[in-house]
Design a protein around this nucleic acid. Sequence first.
DNA 1: TGTGCGTGACTAAGCGCTTGCTTACCATGC
DNA 2: GCATGGTAAGCAAGCGCTTAGTCACGCACA
Lengths: 204, 204
Amino acid sequence: MHLVSASTPTRPVPDGPDARARLARAAVEAFAARGFHGTTTRDISTAAGMSPAALYVHHRSKEELLFELSRAGHERVLEMVRASVAGTDDPVQQLGGVVEEFVRDHAVVHTGARVINYELAALSDEHLAEIVEIRHQIDLVVRDVIDRGVASGAFETPDPHMTALAVLSLGVDVARWFRDEGRWSPDQVAAHYRVLALRMVGVT
Amino acid sequence: MHLVSASTPTRPVPDGPDARARLARAAVEAFAARGFHGTTTRDISTAAGMSPAALYVHHRSKEELLFELSRAGHERVLEMVRASVAGTDDPVQQLGGVVEEFVRDHAVVHTGARVINYELAALSDEHLAEIVEIRHQIDLVVRDVIDRGVASGAFETPDPHMTALAVLSLGVDVARWFRDEGRWSPDQVAAHYRVLALRMVGVT
DNA sequence: TGTGCGTGACTAAGCGCTTGCTTACCATGC
DNA sequence: GCATGGTAAGCAAGCGCTTAGTCACGCACA
């Protein structure tokens, strides 16, 4: 991570302009390791090098902190997915490319992706609705690619909608099982999953 | 669910021989909805129609209750998977069959499957190790089917081990997104996923 | 140039409540 | 007559979050 700046020499460690970023990183690590309810505000603030009360200078509540992490993460993924398909008009290249990027990302930032995908139940109804809408937009991008591939005859699948869901599902679940110390690099997994996804739509 | 028996007429509701089952069902529902740490022992015992202390008549701790649910669920899946591949020697039929059963099961009992797959971090080290071993056995069954399919020439895949992981991953994630009120029945999802899995190993 | 003062980031202390679990006791049936 | 399965009450610890106050800094103005 490149979030730690050199900062001013007059204020060595405790506070500074990167305090929010330190809190965010500490929260992601803790939420991913122990879940939202298994993480205390003291866990987060201590890991960020602050007192418990400092968390409330930057965030209204523990839930709002989770929401902000979740929204930022989802928006980043949505932009990534949209940018990926914008590179070409060929559904085969689009599906292959978006799967490869999506999977690589979920492997590289698997800690953050775990929080984003598996802590949704801890959000308030209003916040959850906002996140669900972004997820729907991500869904639409992949569904559109597969629909156009089927229409052009490049793809063949009995239920394009379910296949789109399955492709995304495959990518999301990478965040659950991927380990940094495992035998495969994010690039290796991404390349393999590109082939798998294309086979799922009948491209051989 | 068929866990509620007619029971004895002398003891209408509160206790009886099915108290353990009532606790188990209440715990699964609660753990799936709010997570292990988001669930209180009072949530569980109240939903089971008992006082908080009654939970400790049947279980040593909240964590042990989760472990027992998790172990029973994992052993059930392992037996199901083993029985499924035992029906034939043809890798194509074996993989298609085991995926279909695995996926249908994860859709039907998605609540229980969610607890089993997403609450592992709440287990103690010793208990987690026991669960990981069962999961490894499940992994081995699918990996063996794919290895034999590749050896016989029926399957083609660049990395059989990663493909086995991906096939199981696809099935596990069904528990995350499946909804009872959704547009697809467990049978429909299972049938579609059978096709997807076979395509992933090059069967067209 | 110096100074008073508002502002933003932070802490020490702690409040009120909830948590997992225990204790002491009670009822029923083999 | 005692194991089994239950309850009421409550304990110690931990929880999210608040309060009151400290401190460094930037800046208008005498």
